[in-house]
Amino acid sequence: MMAWFESIERIEMEEELLRAKAQTLPESQRKDFFKLQSKQLKDPDTYAALNWLFLGGVHHFYLRKYLLFAIELCILVVAIVLLALGFRSALLLVCALTLYELPHLFCAQRIVRQWNLQSSQAIYHQLRAQAKSIVV
């Protein structure tokens, strides 16, 4: 689970520790780790841009958080339909959605670095498990 207020320094420390662990892998696994990791890594600036440009949760889709994406998109569609039908109170939904998204925008670097770290850790553990099953 991601901690909103986890320090960047702590994330950097964990990233460095993971890189050091990855360097201890056998050469073929090390290559696999960095190859898989490079495919999984997400860019914080892209996440922030998607958040800034699209209110419907597209940045969640970018990080493969499909449920959050679907919920935000549904809320936005409902708000737009209600506004089209003349319900001005639907602006409250749009405002609430915007307020919910602001921390995601301002914490984009931390959110994406945490996601990248968790993704990389999963790859590392998967490769370690494969190595253990081959040895046994």
Results as ranks from 00 to 15, higher is better:
R113E: 13
W115N: 04
Q109D: 07
L97Q: 14
L68Y: 00
K39L: 14
L18V: 08
V78I: 14
A49L: 12
L91K: 04
L41H: 03
I71M: 04
S28P: 10
G57Y: 13
L105A: 03
R64Q: 02
T98Y: 11
L82Q: 15
Q23Y: 07
W115S: 04
L55W: 11
D32G: 01
S28H: 12
R64S: 03
G86E: 13
L102A: 10
A22H: 08
Y66V: 14
E12W: 10
F34W: 14
L25R: 12
K42N: 04
Q23E: 15
A22W: 07
R10M: 06
I80C: 08
A96Y: 01
V77H: 09
L83E: 03
R110D: 14
S7M: 08
A96S: 07
L82A: 06
E9D: 11
M13P: 02
E16K: 13
Q109A: 07
L105H: 03
E12M: 14
R64N: 08
D45P: 00
G56D: 13
T24E: 09
I75P: 02
E16W: 05
A84D: 13
T46V: 06
R30S: 15
E101G: 08
F5R: 06
C107W: 02
L97W: 13
Q37K: 15
L63F: 03
F33P: 08
L91Y: 06
F54D: 07
F61K: 11
I71S: 10
D43C: 11
N51T: 01
N51A: 12
Q29R: 08
Q114N: 05
A22C: 07
S119V: 05
Q37S: 13
V58P: 06
G57N: 15
L17A: 09
A79W: 01
R110P: 04
L105M: 04
W115G: 05
